[in-house]
Amino acid sequence: MTMLEQTQGLHEDATDLGGRGSVSDYIALLKPRVMSLVVFTAAVGLVMAPGNQHPVLSFISILCIAIGGGASGALNMWWDADIDAVMSRTKKRPIPAGKITRQEAFAFGMVLSFGSVLTLGLVANWMAAGLLAFTIFFYVVIYTMWLKRSTPQNIVIGGAAGALPPMVGWAAVTGDVTLVSIALFMITFTWTPPHFWALALVKNGDYQAAGVPMLPVVAGETATRHQIVLYSLLLLPVGMAPYFLGFASVFYGVGSAILGLVFLGYAIRVWRVREGDAAKKTAMSLFKFSLFYLMLIFAGLLAENMIGLV
């Protein structure tokens, strides 16, 4: 759908006054499951950062990052309502389900975006607030409005938005961007393509029906499997980077190497099993393990920092 059609859609909706959404529908607009990942990775960045921040201010900073992440989810649903209505995974979201109008989602997302950025600026510093604003802008404008419908590299570049929260958390304490926070960013950034392409292999039909140029739709499933293995190979050293850079112990180094190798093992299985239900099952296993991988990597960094191993 072009920008013009999107705008016309908004005008057509204008006759619908809305007001049907319940509180839980508005919470669903914030994509709570994505939000939990944002909160977790941002908290790790914040805890690892050198310097002292009052715990109350740290808590409110995390809250702002969470709300900012949720706001970008609401704006994503505002723009992508047409795609969401077609795909089985998303057709029960509040807008396609007719519970919330697009204008309501847009207003909700914009208010929360400005509110969270301004509050983070006042509570922490304007570098962190700027990074949060950039995260929202990147996810909504660069990924949702532009890349998602135009290139199979959509989630590679767009993955930057999901990878930024630990950098925002770090900046909330220190007010700067360093090699360490960039390394934290790189972990999620490199992890995103194999994670999403595994899901895209399972939901290929959905993406095809919605006209979203995901890699399996445009380049085919075989090319996607090659790319998954390639990125999983890359993720192995990137996941170990905190150890190489000296801000994680040898325990983390060994743990992240094992996790990276298991990740690669799942990816190779996806590469080898290409037919029928077994292929979908292996892709789904990789998708599930990838979530586990990211959680353990960040939990490891958090635990080391909290017990003072580093």
Partner: peptide, 10 residues
């Protein structure tokens, strides 16, 4: 509608 509006108001 009244119920959802009350929920939103709260």
């Amino acid at each position: 509608q009244a119920k959802t509006r009350r929920g939103r108001s709260v």
